[in-house]
Simulated assay, not measured.
Amino acid sequence: MTTTLTTPTTTGPSRARRVAALARGETRLLLRNRTAVVNSVLLPLLLVAAVPAMDLGGDVPLGPQLLSTAVGVTLVFLTYYNLVSTYVARREDLVLQRMRTGELTAPEVLLGTAVPSLLISLGQVVVVAVGVAVLGEWSAPVEYLLPLVAVLLGTAVMTVLAAASTLFTRTPESAQITTLPLMVATTSLSGLLYPISSFPDWLSTVARLLPVTPVIELLQLGLAGRTWDGEVVDAGGAWAAAPLPLAVLAGWLVIGGVAARGFRWAPRR
């Protein structure tokens, strides 16, 4: 069973109330999962605790480097993976199908279900930012808007990719396998573990087209004024280098959105 994600026709406040109500229910379900809660709290704390020992290479200062890594990690492991597992679990339990028979529209169901994971992702980044400041590694961003744009677009991209990934994910357990290719590619080639400039030219080109790489590029441009190849720029130079990563994110948003139109609301038989 497939359903096209149609545009809601109801008023904005009504949509917001329905999404908020669904998000509260999903949050209660998440809080009952002690393992998920503990992992969500420990990951940023361990990341901040590892600051003195971290040396990821490249010329980006440690503070911006750590914040970029924190955003990339949360997008891949929380936003993307958690949402694939959550969407599939709700589908297989017939929860999504029941919700679609009521007033909730398709986008409202997907957004309301995603809210807890998105809030945890945001909370982790905030905790890491506070930890970086406490440890004295914080520095004023070169351009404040670019990091915000990077986080918002990156979250939107990983959310629609999660919805699209449910098309070939039959069970919550199988999400560990179906999400693996994207997770491995993005964590190893997006600049989280190694600077992109250290790759061969052809691999650098491929890496810059992955969905998380432009997020890291925009973060490092805004936070540290560093381009992907290590060039130091001011605010104007940061915006001059931003069109390509912005275009890549826009492309992935379109691709993911088109693929997610085939989202299944009922279990696969």
Rank of each mutant, 00 (worst) to 15 (best):
A133W: 11
A20C: 02
V215F: 00
P8G: 12
V51W: 04
V88M: 13
T9S: 07
G102Y: 03
T74S: 09
A260V: 04
V142I: 14
W252N: 01
V130G: 14
G63Y: 14
G237P: 06
G222P: 04
S190T: 03
A175Y: 10
T6K: 08
N39I: 09
F199Q: 08
R34Y: 07
L119C: 07
T35N: 05
T11W: 15
P267V: 14
L145I: 14
V254Y: 00
S174K: 14
L249D: 05
G131Q: 08
L94I: 03
G225P: 13
V109W: 10
N82D: 05
V19W: 13
S139P: 03
L43K: 02
L66C: 01
T166Y: 06
L5W: 09
R268Y: 11
T113G: 11
G123T: 04
D93F: 05
V254N: 00
L249I: 01
I120H: 11
M99D: 15
V95L: 11
T79Y: 00
L118P: 13
T27C: 00
P116A: 04
T213E: 06
A133R: 15
T213G: 13
Y80S: 08
R261S: 10
L30T: 04
A247G: 08
A49V: 08
L110Y: 06
A266N: 07
V128A: 06
T179G: 12
G251Y: 08
L180S: 13
A238T: 06
